[in-house]
Every structure is written in C-alpha cells, then in structure tokens.
C-alpha cells in the first residue's frame, strides 16, 4: 500500500462510514419490520430514540461519501507521479483492475447518499416521522454498495505498487481502443452535440416548469439523470477536446489539473450537484401530500428544482464558453 496521507484519509474515512452505514442498516431493518407509531411499546419507544442516532450517523457518513468522491479523484490525480506511464488520474486508476470499478461505485454511492440526505432532510421537517419507512427502504441498497466500495477501496490501494507501468490517458481514451473508454471517445461528435444540448435544454425547461408550478417532477428527475449520463459521455467525446485544444485528447481527468485551471472541479461539481438536486425532486414527489409534510415538501421541491436549474445553467455556461471562445474548431 502507498502510505500517502490522502490514501490514509480515504481509507480511515471509508472504514468509519461503512461501519456507520452497516450499523444504521441493521437498525433500519428492525425499524422496517417493527415500526408502529400508534403503539406505545417499549420496542417502539427505543426505536424512536434510535432513529435520531441513525439519522445523525448517516448524515455524517453520507456527507463524507459526497466529499470523498472528489477527494478520491484528487488523490488519484496526485498519485500519478508515482507510476511510470501515468500522466493524470486516468493512469493511476488503471494501475490495477479495481480502480475504475471503484470510481463507478463511488459515483453511484454519491448519488444514493445525496438522495438519502435529501429525503432525510424532508423527513426531519415533519413531527410524526412521515417518511421513515421510505427512508430506511432507501438505505437497504446503500449498505451493500458501501461495503462493496470499502472492499474495492482496500483492494485498490493495497494493490497499488509504485513499480507498475500503467497506461496514460492518451492511450486509454483513444479512438482505436476497444472497451468503454474508447467507445465513449469515438462517439460521433455531431449527434453527441445535438444530444448534449437537447437534453440540457429539455432539463432546464422542465426544471423551470417544476420550479414555477411545482409539477412535472418525475420527468425532471429522469431528465436530470439523463443529463448527467449524456454530459459525462459528451465530456469524453467532444467537450474536453475544446478545453485541451487537441483533436485527439479525450481524457476526462486531465481537466482536473492546474494546467487547465482546475476547470474539472467546477464542471463535475455543478453537473453532479444539478443531477442530484433534480433527482431529489422526483424522489420526494410521491410524498407531497403526506399529512405533516404537505407544505414542506412542495417548498423543498421547488428549492431543489431552482438549485438544479442554477447548477446545470452554470455547467452549460462553462461548457459553452469553452466551445465558443476556444480557438480550437472541430472539423466535420
């Protein structure tokens, strides 16, 4: 294992959060099975008390999960110096077979954790634990995912050896390379550009509609997820080319480096934040008429929709600025 402070922080953090999530999951199952608000039994009272602990624990654990995605990518970027052949995080992640699956796990956990936190926030607004079952049902997929993430993290970092020769982003994200990275890089530019602006425009319009009227939250949530996926593919396919001003460099990680003014961080933060807030509106939608939350949820949904629209707009502004003001032009 490489004894880098970043690796230690990620490892300790992941160990603590998985322990917390596992503990919370154990009580989550008990709550799902035995929760009965009308009962005054000893078990019910104990569970009611326990929910405070669990939601505090999960707030910390999932809060860390949100930060740790960025910390992980940043650490991977820092570590690239240690591997011959690596020029950015792409090479570090490729240093063994666990790197890219771990990144995907972290991405999924980021979304799950964010949605859980949104639902939890809504639940805390009501006095009678209105979303408690839904909240703990959502927790169920988080437990195995976070345990899996921890084991992958452990396997990845313990399998990192500085003498490994890895591939640089230039060869991973090249047009000829078989596999998903190469496929993403070789996506045709014109249809991709159409899809990118199309989904973003649809999402922004639908978000504005949800914000104004409080309706249409399901389509907006689906569109937000679609925007996230299409934008990630578009970043590899053509947006990055404008930032690097190189027709052959498709790497989605080099934009995180100082040479490109750390532009990747605002790009990914706005994109992920926008998608999360947008998906949150959809997850809250079924409960908008629930007794004690009938005022709180619509208010929260509109706030989330506004946040999402704002973040997507900033993302769109950054991406279009690069495309319009870059001296680089893509030929047909």
């Amino acid at each position: 294992m490489i004894m880098h402070p970043g690796v230690l922080a990620l490892f300790t953090g992941s160990l603590l959060t998985s322990a917390m999530i596992l503990y919370a999951g154990w009580y989550g199952v008990r709550i799902l099975r035995n929760w009965d608000l009308s009962s005054g039994s000893e078990l019910q009272l104990a569970l009611e008390k326990r929910t405070y602990l669990i939601s505090t624990l999960l707030t910390y654990a999932l809060g860390f999960e949100l930060i740790s995605l960025f910390l992980f990518v940043f650490t991977a970027d820092r570590l690239h110096l240690l591997f011959s052949g690596a020029m950015c995080a792409a090479g570090t992640l490729n240093a063994n077979g666990f790197g890219y699956p771990l990144l995907i796990l972290k991405l999924v956990n980021f979304l799950l954790a964010g949605i859980w936190l949104i639902v939890n926030h809504a639940d805390n607004q009501g006095y009678d634990y209105p979303l408690i079952r839904f909240k703990y049902l959502l927790l169920v997929p988080l437990v195995p995912w976070s345990l899996l993430e921890f084991s992958y993290l452990f396997a990845y970092f313990s399998g990192l050896h500085a003498d490994v020769i890895t591939s640089c982003c230039g060869s991973l994200f090249s047009l000829e390379r078989p596999g998903i990275a190469g496929d993403l890089a070789s996506l045709p530019v014109e249809p991709m550009r159409l899809a990118f602006f199309g989904t973003l425009a649809a999402t922004l319009v639908s978000g504005l509609y949800s914000w104004r009227s409080g309706k249409g939250c399901y389509p907006f949530a689906v569109l937000s997820l679609a925007t996230l996926l299409v934008s990630l593919a578009s970043l590899v396919s053509f947006i990055c080319l404008y930032i690097y001003q190189l027709p052959s460099h498709h790497c989605p990680f080099c934009i995180l480096q100082g040479e490109y003014h750390y532009l990747g961080y605002p790009i990914y933060a706005t994109l992920l934040g926008g998608a999360l807030a947008g998906m949150g509106t959809g997850f809250l939608h079924p409960w908008r008429r629930r007794g004690s939350l009938s005022r709180a949820i619509p208010r929260l949904q509109r706030r989330l929709a506004a946040t999402s629209v704002l973040l997507f707009a900033v993302f769109l502004a950054i991406a279009s600025y690069q495309m319009i003001f870059s001296p680089f032009r893509l030929g047909r």
Binding site: I2, M3, H4, P5, V7, L8, L81, L82, S84, A162
Partner: peptide, 14 residues
C-alpha cells in the same frame, strides 16, 4: 523525482 516522492510519502505515512 518519483523515488524521492515515494520515499517522503512513505516516511510520513509510517
């Protein structure tokens, strides 16, 4: 440079 980096990381990690 890489060797120095890993040596220092390793020392501080230890």
């Amino acid at each position: 440079i890489r060797t120095y980096d890993s040596v220092f990381d390793w020392r501080s990690g230890m």
